[in-house]
Write a protein that binds this DNA or RNA. Structure first.
Lengths: 334, 334
DNA sequence: ATTTTTCATGAAAGCGTTTTCCACACTTGC
DNA sequence: GCAAGTGTGGAAAACGCTTTCATGAAAAAT
């Protein structure tokens, strides 16, 4: 008693109508007499008919699926964005094909291609770096795309994020105002615009406002892992640096725990501000003072923007900047 | 200069062969003369032809896509599994449609249906509870499915997880051996078999071995959030309970931080063991002693198992149990 | 030299929908 | 009473591919 798939044709036959009519009732087309509609629906229930989305996609040239390129689901920052994306996607009846890219250029190209092959109606890209090859691929395709949680260096692609320059500047200023003369800038690769271009610019801006000279030696370029934070803490310990800004929460947590484990008192001897405000920031003790980002909303707004793009609606402003905050917790004074 | 899609037909015409031949070279079929293959490949490159996966899916009745039902991507436990799933999925050239279910029965049914409609070749289900309706739907469909990180209550569905009874018993025994007479059992809903059936059984087993009578009042049923842990800590503080086992890391972190914030010394005055070993367990201070689970592997093995199922390979044992550990960190004595 | 195999390829029938025309049967309006 | 709508519904052509079957040519076997 294998469950053989029942097709639209079976329904049509059983209901004594044409496939076209069945298609109409399935798709909520109004040109169907209520009586007919009822009859068809009854047959659909009886036969437990479910439209084949693949056939549908082929015929309509719409897959009601969007592709999400994510560096790593395991990272709370991206996972939160993803959650926002997913929620509004399902609100608009889209499904999500998710692909981990590991921020690896080749892999990104590969997943982009499979996404395109699968005929996704749109793409949301998370990641901090966009190679020219990738950008070319984007413009080359007719599939709408938006960046979530990062800005395209050249602003040629719609994006949703906070203002990284301002927020970083504000964090650094706070650190300086609290009496720190030497504030370290800790981030992932500076080749990523978010670090090397925006955050660093904010850092320099704050320094300038305070009349402090920029010192190359205060810049620490590493990766986004907890372990790197731990390692960095040892380096930091033996310097006259008294505060740091970190571009990632896990990284910051590593620095914090590393420092604490070595007997450095935070925030008394060392102040720390992190920037993504994932739950990690509040799990550690002392709790990390953090730039707060509306993570879920960044994802949600990105997806909403994408729906507009897919709908060919007119977009006022393709580069959306959401408000951020600065939550003083326990790794800064007061 | 709109990029109009180039089809297999265009390639065929341009290369002077039939669609069948193009299809053959695209799919690596050996029945093509090298010279012809070369010619076709050249045209493919020249025209930048990319096979339409939707049309492919319709014709071949395979979507090379698998559905993943996940309670919440934002939860590190599930995200880790997902990562394992995704990696071996892409190893086998499958894509992943991911759906958040929020452990909500209705939503689960809904996403299952859209997954089926999309003709996924297989499904991986994460979640702690399976309603009869859902189970019925599973068996009703011809799509292979496997449970990742949970066991089907009735073992009617292939699954991959650790032994929850044994691991919990071991954790509880440790707590008892360290001198704790009253050990709380903190978990999510007991209606979920993983808690109410397996873990609780392990708890009782350990009690029995130690000759301690089971006390209903030591069972705390809550949800998996950090906040619930914080709340629970206040309750725990004013009892003579001196240790607890928690079924989730965020929950455990909440308990730990709540206790600590109220001046309770962990582990001296209160010992704590958690069970998922996500990164959270090591981020908090003191670090949480935890049952360790091969999270990534659970996901990876699940996906591997699914590929076998989709391939109709013979399965020796559909219920796979992976080894666990117990990592003594800082919330238990030595 | 003839028959049998094997190889390479093409023709065409699906796959399960959507969608564009058409056509028919009624209503309207005058 | 007739032309012009209007609301329903059917026929059939896509959609872009895979796959079966048939076929002719070349290679191997006799």
């Amino acid at each position: 008693m294998e469950k053989q798939t029942v097709t639209i044709y079976d329904v049509a036959r059983e209901a004594g109508v044409s496939m076209a009519t069945v298609s109409r009732v399935v798709n909520g087309n109004q040109n169907v007499k209520p009586a007919t509609r009822q009859r068809v629906n009854d047959v659909i229930d009886k036969l437990d008919y479910r439209p084949n989305a693949v056939a549908r996609g082929l015929a309509s040239k719409k897959s009601t699926t969007i592709g999400v390129i994510i560096p790593d689901v395991t990272n709370a920052y991206f996972a939160s964005l993803a959650r926002g994306i997913d929620d509004v996607a399902s609100m608009y009846k889209y499904n999500i094909i998710m692909e981990n890219s590991d921020e690896n250029d080749q892999k990104e190209m590969a997943v982009l291609n499979t996404l395109l092959a699968k005929q996704v109606d749109g793409i949301i890209f998370m990641g901090n770096r966009v190679t020219d090859k990738l950008r070319e691929e984007f413009s080359h395709s007719r599939t709408p795309i938006v960046f979530a949680g990062s800005v395209d260096d050249e602003e040629s692609v719609p994006s949703v994020s906070i203002d990284y320059i301002e927020s970083t500047a504000e964090a650094i200023s706070k650190l300086i105002k609290e009496g720190n003369k030497k504030v370290a800038f800790i981030s992932g690769s500076l080749s990523e615009p978010i670090n090397g271009k925006y955050r660093l610019a904010g850092y320099k801006q704050a320094l300038k406002e305070a009349g402090i000279k920029f010192d190359e030696k205060l810049i620490f370029e590493t990766d986004y892992s907890y372990e790197s934070g731990i390692k960095l803490a040892s380096q930091l310990k033996d310097t006259d640096i008294t505060a740091a800004f970190a571009g990632d929460d896990r990284l910051a947590a590593g620095v914090l725990n590393g420092l604490t484990d070595q007997g450095v008192k935070v925030p008394d001897q060392f102040a720390l501000i992190t920037s993504n405000d994932t739950q990690v920031a509040q799990l550690v003790r002392p709790q990390l003072t953090s730039i707060t980002q509306p993570l879920y909303d960044i994802g949600a707004v990105s997806m909403r923007l994408l729906t507009k793009l897919m709908n060919k609606e007119e977009i006022e402003e393709p580069t959306i900047t959401l408000p951020y905050g600065l939550d003083s917790r326990e790794t800064t004074k007061k």
